[in-house]
Simulated scan of single mutants.
Amino acid sequence: MEALFLPQIQQRNGCSPVQPAFPTKVYNGHSQETIHLHPFMIGPVTDTKVSLTISNGPKTLQLEVDLHDTVDQLKKRIMQERKFGGSESISLLYENRELKSSETLGQQNVKNQATLFIVHKCNGG
């Protein structure tokens, strides 16, 4: 079958326009008439909002965060809640490893409904 590129597309009422970046083809086969064209996205569309439990011993905090947030941004939110005491320096542990402050939660594979553990850093021993 030969692929033909359509120079112009007529849009029907109620349809979204086809994006110019998407090549539009119709195959010269049994059906000579193109009825409906839609661009498609490759890959799953996922929600980046996740719910986390922050734990510091017996105290816990539930937060909804975005996987695009950095660990530093999350730490700032935790400290704003003032549920775990003063403004001392903290680290966050997930799956037995310390999360890197400058990376996003998504880059470090933090999953929805995860529990992060607070470790307080003490200067001077």
Rank of each mutant, 00 (worst) to 15 (best):
T70A: 03
F5L: 10
V26Y: 13
F84A: 06
M1T: 08
A3M: 14
K59I: 02
C15D: 08
K76N: 08
N123H: 14
N123W: 15
F117T: 13
S51L: 09
P23V: 14
C122G: 12
T70S: 05
L92A: 02
E88I: 09
A3F: 15
Q73N: 11
G43A: 05
G29C: 08
F22R: 15
L92P: 00
T24H: 12
N112E: 02
Q73G: 07
L37T: 06
V119T: 10
N13H: 11
N112S: 03
S51T: 13
G86Q: 10
L6D: 06
Q62P: 00
I54L: 02
S101P: 03
V50D: 08
G43Y: 02
K59P: 00
R82S: 09
H68K: 10
L74I: 02
K25L: 15
V119M: 14
P44F: 10
L61M: 07
R97K: 11
V71G: 03
V119I: 14
T104A: 03
H30M: 10
P58D: 05
F84W: 06
N96W: 09
K76H: 07
V110G: 00
Q73E: 10
T53L: 02
R77Q: 03
G57P: 00
I42M: 08
K83V: 04
S89F: 13
I54C: 01
S87F: 15
V50T: 13
H36F: 11
F5M: 09
Q108I: 06
Q62V: 03
T115E: 00
I42W: 07
L52H: 04
Q19I: 08
M41H: 15
F5D: 04
H30Q: 12
N56D: 04
L105N: 04
Y27R: 09
Q107D: 06
Q10D: 11
P58M: 05
D72C: 00
Q80F: 14
S87E: 14
I78H: 02
A114C: 04
K111D: 06
N96E: 02
Q19G: 08
R12L: 07
L74N: 01
V50Q: 01
S51C: 03
K121E: 10
G14M: 05
P44T: 12
F22K: 13
Q107K: 12
F117Y: 10
Q19A: 11
L116P: 03
H68G: 12
T48C: 09
Q19M: 09
V18T: 06
Q11P: 06
M1V: 04
I35L: 13
I42L: 07
Q10H: 14
S89V: 15
H38V: 15
I35Y: 15
